[in-house]
Design a protein around this nucleic acid. Structure first.
Length: 550
RNA sequence: GCGGGUGUGGUGUAGCCUGGUAUCACAUAAGCUUGCCAAGUUUAUGACUCGGGUUCAAAUCCCGGCUCCCGCACCA
């Protein structure tokens, strides 16, 4: 069977310790993967590069919240509501029904569907097999009945539920961004496509909170002339960030800014620019919380264009929901340039008159009076215990007050770049995989960027001579102590050792040879060119830090 | 979840129909040899997806689970 690039990449990934199928000794289970030694390092590098963009470049703050999330939070966020129970679909009219809505409780669902006992209520055609649709993993907290909870389907809710604390932490200034990097869980019905669709996966999410009246971004000017790679469901095209906003291709500066930041991140990480594009969600494919969403799609030779990052404008959806459900004050304050003085006229009850007149009803009358509009104050009649009663003028007066308003409350809007780390990681492997024939044999190189590569340098003695071995081991040790990941190898021929390093993407190889004994230099071989250069071994730390650190 | 296909050392495979000690290559480890791009050589390690059944005997035949692949559905 001919192997496509997916097979080749996954074989390499398994053989060299990037990705293993989880629980393999028990037969494995779809949708779960382990990261091996090199995969874990690569994942760290991807996550840390992402952090560098959001935490440092964009000055966000980072938090960590539990992966187990109580029912209330996900109910408020709409995740519980969206899907429950089994559903059946009608292939004719494309409607979906909850099974419990259309069949008797006594028969099993499968039987009912198989025996054609249930038909589509709308068009009468046969229904598809029942399938479950709530994709959240559920669990309980505590023993016994416990408290209902889910494994989080996104990290975002942990940020939203802390908004009021984080807003204060940021000294009540907008905009500001909060990131979280961690695991998310979705109980996919039938995960395929390898690590591209997992049931437990790593995600890096940023929630940036904006004043809805001001969706500009402070760094916008620095990137406005950069080009975005866009796709309008018809053709691909490039547009500068500025033009995309001006032409309303992208709704606002903030969204456009984070699109560019994401593009910059992915291309820096080593995604092939020719296999990168932003695609805008059509209105009918938007998630329940989003008003506008752009996906980064990366191209896989086997799977086609795959969503890897979603950049959504979630508007005020989540914070509003949590304000309603939890009664927590999660509003932000917008200060007016100048305080607004508002003259108001109010009806003020004169209790010393009302009291004797209405006795025990006086309190009720007062409440009613003060709720009334001043315009109606010439002649007032109220409804008291079903009877209409006139209230004499002497019972109240019109009072003028001046209120000074320095600002107003509002619910911030959220821009959310949400990055699927595992997908990005897979694409780094696929986009950077190259195999060529070398003397008739397949020769594989993983052309990871120096910053992403799990191992920065291989360190070898040219031959297995103790004098050279000792120096090589010392160099290896020095580099690792300087924070540079290395791999020492003295097995097999030098060519074989280079090949082993090329296959896992190691950008540099350092070889100690006989000349090292004379002049303290070593050869530094570059992966992609295979060119060698002699360098003084004391300069290696500086050289490698310069080439491989973020 | 439905239908079809599939599964043999780390990787790729032969053997399965016709039941009887599992083939070959690469990789890995140790030694010799060589000394800047997977050379040679000797030796070693290592496999029948899992569970049942039939049989004196199962990689092989039968049943079921799981993985992966293809189609449908699903992917908020």
């Amino acid at each position: 069977m001919p192997q496509d690039i997916y097979d080749k990449v996954m074989m390499l990934a398994k053989r060299r310790g990037f990705i293993y199928p989880s629980f393999e000794i028990y037969g494995g289970v779809a949708g779960f993967y382990d990261y091996g030694p090199l995969g874990s390092q690569l994942k760290n590098n991807v996550e840390n590069l992402w952090r560098r963009f959001y935490l440092l470049k964009d000055n966000c703050i980072e938090i960590n919240t539990p992966t187990i999330t109580i029912y209330d939070v996900l109910e408020a966020s709409g995740h519980v509501e969206e899907f429950t129970d089994l559903t059946v679909d009608c292939k004719k009219c494309k409607r979906s029904y909850k099974v419990e809505d259309i069949i008797d409780e006594d028969i099993s669902v499968e039987q009912a569907v198989k025996k054609d006992e249930i038909k589509c209520p709308t068009c009468g055609k046969k229904l598809s097999d029942a399938h479950p649709v709530n994709l959240m993993f559920s669990t309980t907290i505590g023993i016994g009945e416990g408290r209902k909870a889910f494994l989080r389907p996104e990290t975002a809710q942990g940020i939203f539920t802390n908004f009021h604390l984080l807003y204060r932490h940021n000294r009540e200034k907008l905009p500001f961004g909060v990131i979280q990097v961690g695991k998310g869980y979705r109980n996919e019905i039938s995960p395929r496509q390898g690590t591209l669709r997992q049931r437990e996966f790593a995600m890096a999410e940023a929630e940036i909170f904006f004043d809805p009246n001001d969706k500009t971004h402070p760094n916008f000017n620095s990137i406005k002339e950069k080009e975005l790679y866009l796709f309008d469901n018809d053709k691909e095209f490039k547009l500068t960030v500025q033009k995309a906003v001006d032409k309303k291709v992208i709704n606002n500066q903030a969204l456009a800014y984070y699109m560019y930041l994401t593009q910059d991140f992915l291309l820096t990480a080593g995604v092939d620019p020719k296999k990168f594009r932003f695609r805008k969600h059509a209105s009918d494919e938007l998630a329940h919380y989003a008003t506008e969403c752009w996906d980064v799609e990366l191209f896989s030779e086997r799977f086609g264009w795959i969503e890897c990052v979603g950049i959504a404008d979630r508007s005020a959806y989540d914070l509003s929901s949590h304000i309603d459900s939890s009664s927590t004050d999660m509003y932000a304050q917008r200060k007016f340039d100048e305080p607004k003085i508002i003259n108001t006229k109010k009806i003020a009850a004169k209790m010393h008159v009302l009291g004797p007149l209405f006795k025990d009803k006086a309190g009720k009358v007062k409440d009613l009076l003060e709720k009334m509009d001043v315009k109606d104050a010439t002649k007032i009649s109220i409804t008291l215990d079903g009877k209409t009663v006139d209230v004499p003028n002497k019972c109240y007066e019109i009072v003028e007050t001046k209120e000074k308003l320095t600002g107003e409350k509002f619910v911030p809007h959220v821009i959310e770049p949400s990055c699927g780390i595992d997908r990005v990681l897979y694409f780094l492997l696929e986009h950077n995989y190259s195999d060529a024939k070398k003397k008739g044999e397949e020769y594989r190189i993983l052309k990871l960027t120096s910053q992403m590569a799990p191992i920065k340098a291989g360190v070898f003695p040219l031959i297995n001579d103790k004098k050279l071995v000792d120096i090589a081991k010392k160099i290896d040790n020095n580099l690792r102590n300087a924070g540079i990941a290395t791999y020492y190898d003295d097995g097999g021929t030098i060519g074989r050792r280079y090949a082993r390093m090329d296959e896992i993407g190691t950008p540099f190889c350092i070889t100690v040879d006989h000349d090292t004994l004379k002049d303290n230099t070593v050869t530094v071989r570059e992966r992609d060119t295979t060119k060698q250069e002699r360098k003084d071994q004391d300069l290696l730390v500086e050289f490698l830090k310069d080439k491989t650190f973020f």
